[in-house]
Structure formats: C-alpha cells, structure tokens
C-alpha cells in the first residue's frame, strides 16, 4: 500500500507541469478513478476545504489522501513523493547551468502541457457540474453557478470567502425536514 501511495504521487509529480492547481485533474484521475482511495463526493469536499485553507494545494491533497489510505506514514510519503524528486532536480540544474533559460526545449514541453491540463480541467468541471445537478437539482445548481461565478469573475471575490460563508451557513441555520431529503 505504501509503495502504491509513493508511486502514484511520484507519477503525478513527474508529469504535473504548471504548478500545483494544474495537478488537480491528474490527482482526481489517479485517486478517484484508478485507485478508488476516495469517492467523488469526498474529493469535492477535499477540494473545497483545500481551497478554504491557505498554502499550496498540491501538497494538501497528497498529504490528506496519503493520510486517509495509510495514516501519518502515508501522509508523509504522499507529500515526499510529489515534492522531493523535482527539488533535487532544481538544485542540481541550478548548480550545473548558469544560463538554464537556454534549455528552450524543456520550456516548450512545459508550455505544451497546458492545453492538455485545460481539457482535463474541463472534464472535471463537467463531472462536478453533473454531480451538483444530481444532488441539488438543476433549479438550485444553475442559479448557484451563476451567482458564484458572478461573485468571483465579476466582483473579484475570493473563492475561499464564498466556501467559508456556505460552510458557516450550513452549520448555523436550522435543519428543516425538506433540506434532509
């Protein structure tokens, strides 16, 4: 199990170009679809909480998923697997090259991955939209998407604020019979 945690996040770390957030669809594909360590619903909760907390996203996800699969040891393994190899690569490359910007073909590779990530992110958007639709219904999902999208895109509100407000409202408002269905 430990080896599988390590290999899964090592693989994601090695193909995940473009910073942490671009790794979200890769992590989803691996831990939800292939390994089935977490369900789709859990993954949505994890993403929501990770976005409400400060700090890097791509270490919180492997850390928590590793923890869920195999406790503290799994957590540490997940984080090490996704971070350490490229820290070494960076230290070594900076020691070896003075003008590493000249390695243009590596930069070209990094750029070319972005559209692939975009397509995967689009798939994930659609997945979560369908999930919201089946659990809240179209008449709740559409207005929520429009309002939340407007607040973030139009007014520049931070997503963390919106999630935090939703969580607080969910905790403090009374639970009616209707909302239990």
């Amino acid at each position: 199990m430990n080896i599988q945690i390590f290999l899964s996040f090592l693989k994601i770390g090695l193909v995940g170009f473009g910073g942490g957030p671009s790794m979200i669809p890769l992590i989803h594909d691996e831990v939800v679809k292939r390994r089935q360590w977490v369900s789709d619903d859990d993954f949505s909760n994890i993403l929501a909480i990770a976005n409400t907390l400060p700090g890097p996203i791509a270490t919180k996800l492997p850390g928590y998923i590793g923890y869920k699969v195999n406790g503290i040891f799994g957590c540490i393994l997940g984080v090490l697997a996704i971070t350490v190899p490229m820290i070494f690569a960076m230290v070594i490359l900076l020691g070896a090259f003075n003008h590493y910007q000249n390695i243009v073909w590596i930069r070209g590779m990094g750029q070319a991955v972005v559209p692939v990530v975009m397509i995967m992110m689009l798939q994930l958007t659609w997945d979560f939209f369908k999930k919201a639709k089946s659990s809240l219904g179209l008449y709740v999902t559409i207005p929520m998407v429009v309002v939340v999208g407007g607040l973030i895109f139009g007014l520049g509100m931070h997503p963390a604020t919106i999630i935090l407000v939703l969580l607080v409202v969910a905790v403090i408002t009374p639970v009616t019979i209707r909302s239990l269905r």
Partner: peptide, 11 residues
C-alpha cells in the same frame, strides 16, 4: 455542507 459546495467546486 458537502452538497452545497459542489456547484462552487464546479465553478
């Protein structure tokens, strides 16, 4: 909570 955050995560 888990249901309400779904549309936000989609956005």
């Amino acid at each position: 909570m888990s249901r309400w955050v779904l549309p936000v995560v989609a956005v």
